[in-house]
Write a protein that binds this DNA or RNA. Sequence first.
DNA 1: GGTCGCTCATACCTGTGAGGTATCGCGGGC
DNA 2: GCCCGCGATACCTCACAGGTATGAGCGACC
Lengths: 316, 316
Amino acid sequence: MEARHLRYALAVAEHQHFGRAAAALGIAQPPLSRQIADLEREVGERLFDRTPGGVFPTAAGAAFLAPARRALCEMSAAAVEAGRAARGETGRLRVGFIGSALLRFLPSVLAPFRRDHPDVRLELREMSTARSAAALTRGELDLAVGRGAPRGAGAEELVTVTVGRDHLVTVVGTGHPYAGLKTVSLAQLGRQHLIVTPADDEPAVRAGLRALLEDNTLALDTATEARDVHTIIGLAACGVGAGLGPSCMRAAGRPDTWFCDVTPRTPLPDLVLSHRRDDRSPVLAAFLEETRRSATTRARPGRARGAAVSRSDAAR
Amino acid sequence: MEARHLRYALAVAEHQHFGRAAAALGIAQPPLSRQIADLEREVGERLFDRTPGGVFPTAAGAAFLAPARRALCEMSAAAVEAGRAARGETGRLRVGFIGSALLRFLPSVLAPFRRDHPDVRLELREMSTARSAAALTRGELDLAVGRGAPRGAGAEELVTVTVGRDHLVTVVGTGHPYAGLKTVSLAQLGRQHLIVTPADDEPAVRAGLRALLEDNTLALDTATEARDVHTIIGLAACGVGAGLGPSCMRAAGRPDTWFCDVTPRTPLPDLVLSHRRDDRSPVLAAFLEETRRSATTRARPGRARGAAVSRSDAAR
DNA sequence: GGTCGCTCATACCTGTGAGGTATCGCGGGC
DNA sequence: GCCCGCGATACCTCACAGGTATGAGCGACC
């Protein structure tokens, strides 16, 4: 049985007349008669009653036509869905991201992406840079948002794009001696109890900090660790010590906290997107395109900081 | 796009290999490659990634395959449903019946029919013989169970089958003078206040009664009318008078009622099935077949009364 | 009641295209 | 570098979808 048979049967049912159905199908009447006869032979039942008053479906014909209609619907739906999937309008995007990406990058990208791709299922999971990179190479994620390009096993299969730059800031509670200062020096920081992100989670960030505080590794080794920027800020607000984090962390500021730039101005590893090099997912491509677009529209009106996007490979 | 393309695409997806898919389809590999290429051209998207490690659906391909599978399912379902409908296993049967058919005929036929045709939607509506015949010719019913073959406009388009015979009995309350009698005569009945079925509802029954009581038409003209056997019995129990009805009415007897045969033994119009002569519905045919079968199985062990089935035309 | 007209079925022809065979191009692995 | 496996390409062939001509059945109508 071919789709042709279904189309012909539906045309006959619609027009109740072989001649007119054939005309509507753009073929002659005899071939239509024969195709219907072939179909009836294959199904094993007469599907139409040919009466002088017109052609009407038998009980078997009526029962045949409903699923036949659905089958043709599904066939055209297949073509439509293939096109939509190819354009990235449907599908799924599994994104792993660090919490600080929620402060500036994701807000600027997610809203327009959702607007332009409402039928894409976004699966967003907050996780550390290290975990998202591993999940990416295992195929459990399609996109990772983290700080610093992934290194280590499988990293050469990934491609990274920088989507944000931040420098180091410190956050303290309003009762802390630094509260009210515009800047604090590295030397001052080295004498504080620090609150930092765990080494396992953010190797690039920790390596950078270790290099900065080379004379005060003790400060880092005895530091309090917190996985989330909000936790770092909250602990600082409690007076636990001086939190260290990216400058975008200011967006999560609370009335009982104070932020100081660190001098000298100290860039942190870039906020980067990573995805598998061989990933041809149109949804991923659409998301990256949206990232580029939102970067340029943000860059034009004013400062390019945090909006610079440059493509590079993680392999080395 | 033809069903062939869907089958081929599904085979390629399943085997992840053009050669093996072609073998499974019973064709050579080159035609399969070409059909897939044709399909991709028609859809406008590449559906499969041909890699050295195997053939895998692209995002568009994956989106295509799901509805394609459903389309093929619907196609085979169409053939199956046509067969089931042709065998009367699915469909609808709208039956109009007089209340007394619930006493003997319908109980013997409906249970086995439902058991053998569980997916047929039975629409059962209690109505008078006159109304069911009219609804039948208007196409609002498929089958009518009534007393006496339909006459009048449209009756020649109907076919009737006798499914039950009854003779006249009378029912009285236990306080009535006839209570305890085995039989009462027509003459005795003519002196009673009667409870009978309305003339509009059951013309054949009323005509028969009128002929019987020719000397006592007054008794009929002043009779109480009740549409339903249960109402006739109930009114008789209340002492309103002597109810007249078919012998199968005994099956609805109550402790406060008494039934007497009428002498001489007086046959009532047959209980008949009617259906449109041009109705080719397999469900109807299956129901009639079930009727015949249950009649013969009931006839064998004992009395054939009420089970005799004879086919005849209502036209005259 | 014979004829006409309408409609679907049948007979037969034709051209397209599905499927066959042979072969090429291209990676990957030894 | 060579071989092997796999999909693509080239070309052929025949089945079958579709075309034309005509037949068969059945109302309608004069």
